[in-house]
Nucleic acid binder design. Structure first.
Lengths: 250, 250
DNA sequence: CGTGCCAGGTGCCTT
DNA sequence: AAGGCACTTGGCACG
């Protein structure tokens, strides 16, 4: 149990020192901004980090009920509550946390964040594919990624053995509608720029039935593959071309 | 500073009691599952909630660096570290947090989580529109909300004064490419089912340039609208039909 | 700064 | 269980 005066002092010190601050207590929360919300009174945890990002957590789920980044945080006593406010402009947003009882305050001096190293990202898969496309299809050669097309417009651009431009979209998860529409869009753009028929290949471990239908409708191609997350590198185990059979058309 | 023995006891009790548990200390983190990652030694906060969702937080950003839900959590002493593990099957995932120093442990008995009341969601906006489509367009009558199709769910289905079926897609923020393809999909579905020309209307506060182009290409319509997020109800302030002008074609 | 796009997305709801 | 989708999506990279 903290008096609001004590609490306020602790909190302001922690924020000033860019410490990891935790406040636990009975509170009511109001948010207004991109949307609006009210959280009825209850016991919750308020977490304020050194970069001023703050979050209200209940005792369930990963995501906080309320949160804000890059906010200006202030703390004041108001009537019978300790009010913590986070405000920001652009977009204009505000959170107000009314603490009616403060059960605990903890703050920790943290060291500068060590970065997470991630393997098995889509990017890495794309890089891995780029190294050797021959196992996708005989005679497929990657073109330089930068060149005429803006970077990021497609995962990979290659040339097949007949000289056709091939746009390749890589998804490391089950491909859905948006993967197909994205590929279609890329292929169309490339076609427009080069003025020649362009193939579009979607490479993914799986594809949703509906997405598959759309893909075939667009005349795009699909390759499935298996991959194994390895350390330190992603290993692609096998690729299999999936072409619609006659029966699938009926 | 906690001895690993003490720490372990505290932690196990808190987990058993479904309390909100916080452990602060110097740790090394490994994740293996949908991707793979390693966090070098550093001071971090581990949060374990009553529903067994757990997260490793650094002193910046809203999102935790590592996290897991519905995991089986265990705690053991190993060599010179206190190891907290979260494991789950389907998909097979695991996080291991190796604490080399435990600075603090806090646990809190929390009450059952209260529901956040959110205003200004897409659903609420759709509800508001559903009530009265007339200020969208004269003689427009709502038929059905949340119409499920084989390939998705349309926000609203209506009928215009000439008896045409109108599919309406509502977006609470700037509409992008995917909003247009989504609408197009639903409109096509309805057209196919009913065998008559179907109008598609996108209602959003703004629309991205290329999305707008695609929309017009598809022969769909766009209405911009303003809304005021309020409590207890979000109000739609105005709807305006946006048709391409002659100059826009040049 | 906006635009585009991935994410170990999360969470919710429906079939 | 899987699909489909909104989300105050968050976060990052690029123009």
């Amino acid at each position: 149990m903290f008096s609001f005066g004590q609490a306020r002092q602790r909190i302001e010190e922690a924020i000033k020192g860019k410490q990891m601050l935790l406040v636990v207590g009975n509170c009511y929360v109001e948010y207004w901004g991109r949307a609006a919300s009210k959280l009825p009174k209850g016991k919750r945890l308020l977490m304020i980090k050194g970069d001023s990002s703050s979050a209200i957590h209940q005792n369930r789920l990963l995501r906080p009920t309320n949160y804000m980044m890059n906010a200006r945080i202030s703390c004041e006593e108001q009537d019978n509550a300790l009010v913590l406010s986070a405000k920001k402009l652009k977009p204009k947003e505000s959170i107000k946390v009314f603490f009616y009882r403060v059960d605990d305050i903890q703050s920790y001096e943290m060291d500068s964040a060590a970065d997470l190293r991630l393997f098995g990202s889509e990017r890495e898969l794309s890089n891995e594919l780029m190294k050797d496309l021959s196992f996708l299809e005989e005679g497929l050669k990657p073109l330089k990624q930068e060149q005429a097309f803006r970077k990021g417009i497609a995962d990979l651009i290659a040339e097949d053995k007949d000289g056709n431009i091939v746009v390749i979209e890589v998804k490391r998860r089950k491909a859905d509608f948006s993967a197909v529409t994205q590929l279609q869009r890329y292929a169309k753009q490339v076609e427009k720029i080069n003025g020649v028929k362009t193939r579009g290949i979607l490479v993914a471990p799986e594809i949703m039935k509906n997405a598959r239908d759309l893909l075939e409708n667009y005349g795009l191609e699909y390759y499935s593959f298996d991959f194994e997350i390895g350390n330190p590198k992603t290993k692609i185990k096998g690729v299999q071309k999936k072409q619609p059979t006659i029966t699938e058309f009926m």
